[in-house]
Amino acid sequence: MAIIELKNLWKEYGSEVVLERLNARVEAGEFITIVGASGCGKTTFLKMLLGTENPTRGELLLDGKAIPEEPDATRGIVFQRYSVLPHLTAERNVMLAGELAANRYTGHAFGARRQELKASAQVMLEDVGLGHAINKYPHELSGGMQQRLALAQALIKKPRILLLDEPFGALDPGIRKDMHALVIKLWREQQLTVFMITHDLDEGFYLGTRLWVFDKDRLDPQAPGAYGARITYDLPVGKDDHGTLEDIATRVDSTARVLG
């Protein structure tokens, strides 16, 4: 059975149609990259998967049932920023999920349980290349290190679905390459289902297993909100097809110009 299913999914804010007639099935273990002009509704779609926004029409199913209407531990997320907690050191950020599970009231772990959490947090931090920064606060880490920390923090909870909203958008190109390798590694190890938004079309074309392009196939320049974006391309990634890439790039650009 598909882990995620979209059945004629719509999202509108008042009279503005953001997304319309989305239909797709996603199997567990897929890595979907989403590209599209800014303002076309990618984040809105991710928020629906997260449970902070609800579809206005149609169905969004998780394991065949309506997706929970609030965030929970099945879906982990890394935002572009503000993902880690500024008042905790790197190690405490990663231990947090375990501490919350250890005691419903205090959200703290003690004794042997605490030592276990500490040990596995250290392994996780080594894994994402932060072994040397265990006791640093987030403000003492660079942007790339903060995003690594956010990944470690989300993945130690072993979510079934990982949502990434332009997680590397603010990073330098070199560091981005490292982060790609890291995400692919973690995805393989943990058999996650990943939805990753990126504004970098090239990134979408070689990272992951499946590329979705969100675009408005009907677009009224006088009223950009009249029609919503749809999934205009749904391609397996890997076949290096330069013509398609160019084609997508041109169309997304022209939408971007109208949405401004």
Partner: peptide, 26 residues
């Protein structure tokens, strides 16, 4: 930031835990 409240929920926190582990210390 809303992001941090959402983050806590995705790490399994209930309302009380969000208050004692995120809001109170901040």
């Amino acid at each position: 930031p809303e992001e941090q409240i959402i983050k806590m929920q995705t790490l399994g926190a209930n309302t009380w835990q969000i208050i004692v582990r995120l809001i109170l210390p901040q």
